[in-house]
Design a protein around this nucleic acid. Structure first.
Length: 844
DNA sequence: CTCTCCCT
């Protein structure tokens, strides 16, 4: 059978012979995965050296190897073999080795010269997995270093090939056509927003009318799949209706098979991204794409990942649409508009830009590199995520304080596990906890063995979600049939991983006995940055070591633990994160196991609730306070804590202001305005707040509570802000009051801006011609002239003019309204008074 | 109101 790629094979072989690297761009169905390695097998210039091909998935690796072997009429493991985790079919005569990503990385680390290998092929490179990017960087490093005879082939379906060709020293690019059928793309008429399940269900009805063949619906996650499934079951008639089948990674194998294999009637498959690349479904001619998928985001600040529902990229949408054109012409309904299509990102961000890079930092350190700029990258690993990865590796003792690989880190790098779990195993070995650690690490690294089906609630409380799972695994191993809570398939996978680790660690066979304390300890080794302290007794809110907040999920069996390890923690959108899996941790264990991370801190603080200064010495673990005991504070500590508390509470307005103190303040502020630049202190509230410790602290001796403070005379500290000369001038130039002609002493009011105000009954000023002056005679006061009842009559700064012009006008009306008071025709020569006529006469 | 997918 001939395939499209056959046409370019001769030119591919000569180009690769003459160049160190070639980029091959070919869409799915071109036949590159099987034809290229077989073609190289015949190339004499390879002189019998091996061909290693990288595949992103195990199934793809074994299928490719089996197909090539059958093309040669051989069994797998003779000329063509493969190696994936737990399965190796490679013999002495094998020349084509198909391997998955982790295998290639281990092999490169173990054999950095790639002895006996002539070509490395990176298949499906457009998927841009972290491991593939790393493999390319390391292979190119080998090629430009010690092995200039090594050939590299990058095969890609949709990637724009220029950047990778440039990275490989302007490698030639060969392209060939694919073999797929046209797909009719039908855009939606409006933006469906986030309601993808509803929109998808409606479109299923439409597609069932308009098309034939099976339907594949892409939805972001299980929640939407379940919702869409319910909607369709309610709206489709029972008999003759199509088969509705969900498909996602957490489903047991048998349920996945039901979705993939042909059915006896029309089929509607509701799937996640799993159907985009990993699984191919027989008989699909119609695709409905919601346009959304769940994507992982990594927050370098907290080292925590979170899943978001985001728009797919244009490349992803094309890949999804292509799923309808494998058998014959197909149809794809896109639940977004043609207009929105233009705003899609061209491609999904490569994994290296969006994930935890601690494993990458360890691989690079093992390769002998501390600065990633020493290697070629299509997208350099982000500096912040690399730094966070380095910090974590230091916590895990894999790197020393200078970022160099330690012997412990070197051993960690040999384990097929995340560095957290490799560290857990090595620490556990020292403590004779090897076998339980292997179980724990296996559970943490594989899919959850606990069945998710049961709704929230109904689960027993437990000190540890992980202790529960370890015990369930032990029960399954012992053949307990009542373990309906576990997924048998997941247990088998976990057991295989655990067995591999026991072998690597030289650990005892599993005993099945676990205790909460050692599970907590082991988890604290692996997740020292996820230790969390309960905010208050009984609360489900926690504070993590890194200072971030998190809330215990209802799905966790852990409840009301003062200290725990937040093993699976999902970052929140600014607010609290969610802890999905947790394990209790004993205080003494932290104190014993992490002495270098503990610190003591004396805290003297104002406590609002108790209304007094409290002093404690805290034992801290990062941002967490593990223990605090009361201490006796020094007087100066109390005072500064008090001031800080005051400032927090409400600034200077929280001080015990009296009218006299406020008046003093405003008088000084008046003079400071009048004599700007002559050294008067700024007594505004803002300035007082900023200098609170300096001017108030020494007056706080013996004050321990708000009650004590209320008895403080604020005038004294405020007076302390003036020097002797200023105090003298204040009394003269901004007097608190003025004696008016009637003999009354009247308060002057000093407003925040403008001149002072004298509010006085006008009769008390009879005979006075000149407006009173302050500030060495510079500033006339503002007179608020009042009626006998204290009502305002006139505001003026020109008293003479008032008597001459205004008084004659208003006198008549005042006389009518206040007949008992004197209203002389000649105010210049009348006696000033605050009394009525009668009293004046009586007095006389 | 739950966790997309893949790999040593």
């Amino acid at each position: 059978m001939s395939l499209p790629v056959d046409e370019i094979i001769p030119s591919f072989l000569t180009t690769l012979r003459n160049n160190p690297a070639v980029v091959l761009q070919a869409p799915p169905g071109a036949g590159k995965t099987t034809r290229i390695p077989l073609a190289l097998l015949a190339a004499e210039w390879l002189a019998g050296r091996k061909i290693v091909m990288l595949e992103p998935r195990r199934l793809a690796a074994t299928n490719a190897a089996r197909w090539m072997a059958s093309c040669l009429g051989e069994e797998v493991g003779r000329t063509v073999g493969y190696q994936i985790r737990f399965d190796r079919k490679i013999g002495a005569t094998t020349r084509v080795e198909v391997v998955t990503e982790g295998i290639l990385t281990r092999r490169l680390q173990h054999d950095p010269l790639l002895e006996g290998v002539g070509v490395v092929i990176l298949d499906e490179f457009h998927e841009r997995s972290l491991q593939a990017d790393l493999a390319l960087a390391l292979c190119r490093d080998i090629q430009t270093g010690l092995r200039d005879d090594l050939k590299l082939v990058v095969m890609s379906a949709t990637l724009d090939t220029e950047p990778v060709a440039a990275l490989l020293g302007n490698a030639p690019v060969l392209a060939c056509a694919g073999r797929s059928f046209p797909v009719d793309i039908r855009y939606g008429e409006r933006d469906e927003g986030g309601e993808s399940a509803e929109a998808a269900a409606r479109t299923v009805h439409r597609a069932l009318r308009e098309t034939t063949g099976d339907l594949l619906i892409f939805l972001p996650g299980t929640r939407e799949i379940r919702r869409c499934e319910r909607l369709l079951e309610q709206s489709l008639p029972g008999s003759g209706s199509p088969l509705i089948v969900p498909l996602y990674g957490d489903l047991p194998f048998s349920a996945q098979e039901r979705a993939i294999l042909p059915a006896d009637r029309r089929k509607v498959v509701l799937a996640t991204n799993i159907a985009e690349t990993s699984l191919t479904i027989e008989g699909v001619t119609v695709v409905i794409d919601s346009g959304w998928s769940r994507q992982l985001r990594f927050d370098p600040a907290s080292g925590i990942e979170r899943l978001v529902t985001a728009r797919v990229s244009a490349a992803s949408a094309d890949q999804r649409a292509g799923r309808a054109g494998r058998l014959g012409p197909g149809t794809c309904y896109r639940l977004w508009t043609e207009h929105q299509q233009r705003s899609l990102l061209p491609a999904t961000a490569p994994e290296i830009l969006a994930t935890d890079l601690a494993p990458l930092v360890l691989e690079l350190a093992a390769w002998g590199i501390s600065d990633p700029a020493q290697l070629p990258w299509l997208d350099p690993p982000p500096v912040s995520a690399m730094a966070e990865g380095g910090r974590l590796l230091q916590l895990l003792e894999a790197l020393d304080e200078k970022g160099r690989l330690t012997p412990h880190g070197k051993e960690m790098a040999t384990f097929p596990l995340h560095p957290r779990l490799a560290h857990l195993l090595l620490k556990a070995r020292e403590r004779n906890l090897g076998s339980p650690a292997c179980d724990l690490a296996a559970i943490l690294s594989e899919r959850d063995i606990l069945r998710r089906a049961s709704p929230a609630g109904g689960r027993e409380k437990s000190p540890s979600d992980l202790l529960d799972r370890c015990q369930l695994l032990a029960g399954w191993r012992a053949g307990n049939r009542h373990v309906g809570q576990v997924d048998v398939q997941s247990c088998q996978v976990v057991e295989r991983v655990a067995r591999q680790q026991r072998k690597l660690l030289n650990a005892e066979p599993p005993t099945g006995s676990f205790d909460a304390e050692s599970v907590g300890l082991m988890l604290a080794w692996a997740f020292p940055d996820r230790i969390a302290r309960q905010r208050a007794p009984g609360s489900d809110r926690y504070l993590l070591v890194n200072g971030k907040g998190a809330r215990l999920s209802d799905r966790s069996a852990v409840h009301d633990e003062p200290l725990l390890v937040a093993v699976n923690c999902e970052g929140g959108d600014g607010g609290d994160g969610v802890i999905h899996l947790a394990s209790a941790l004993r205080m003494e264990v932290v104190q014993r196991e992490f002495p270098s991370m503990l610190s003591r801190k004396r805290v003297v603080e104002w406590d609002d609730r108790q209304g007094r200064v409290i002093a404690v010495e805290e034992e801290r673990f990062g941002a967490l306070c593990l223990e605090s005991r009361p201490v006796k504070p020094a007087p100066d500590e109390v005072q500064s804590a008090f001031v800080r508390g005051l400032l927090r509470k409400g600034g200077v307005s929280a001080l015990p202001w009296t009218p006299a103190a406020r008046e003093f303040q405003s008088r000084v502020m008046f003079l400071a305005r009048e004599y700007d630049g002559e050294g008067w202190p700024d007594l505004s509230d803002d300035a007082l707040r900023d200098s609170l410790p300096e001017w108030l602290e020494r007056w706080l001796g013996g004050i321990k509570s708000m009650g004590d403070l209320a008895r403080l005379d604020l005038l004294s500290p405020l007076r302390g802000l003036l020097d002797r000369e200023q105090a003298r001038r204040l009394d003269v130039e901004a007097p608190p009051d003025i004696i008016v002609p009637s003999g009354s002493r009247i308060r002057l009011h000093y407003p925040a801006d403008g001149p002072p105000v004298l509010a006085v009954k006008l009769q008390e000023l009879f005979g006075l011609a000149a407006t009173p002056l302050v500030a060495r005679g510079r500033v006339p006061v503002v007179l608020h002239l009042l009626s006998p009842a204290g009502r305002p009559i006139q505001v003026t700064r020109d008293l003479r003019n008032f008597w001459d012009v205004v008084y004659p006008e208003v006198k008549k009306e005042l006389k009518g309204r206040y007949p008992k008071h004197p209203w002389p025709d000649d105010p210049w020569n009348a006696a000033p008074t605050r009394h009525t006529k009668k009293r004046l006469e009586g007095k006389r």
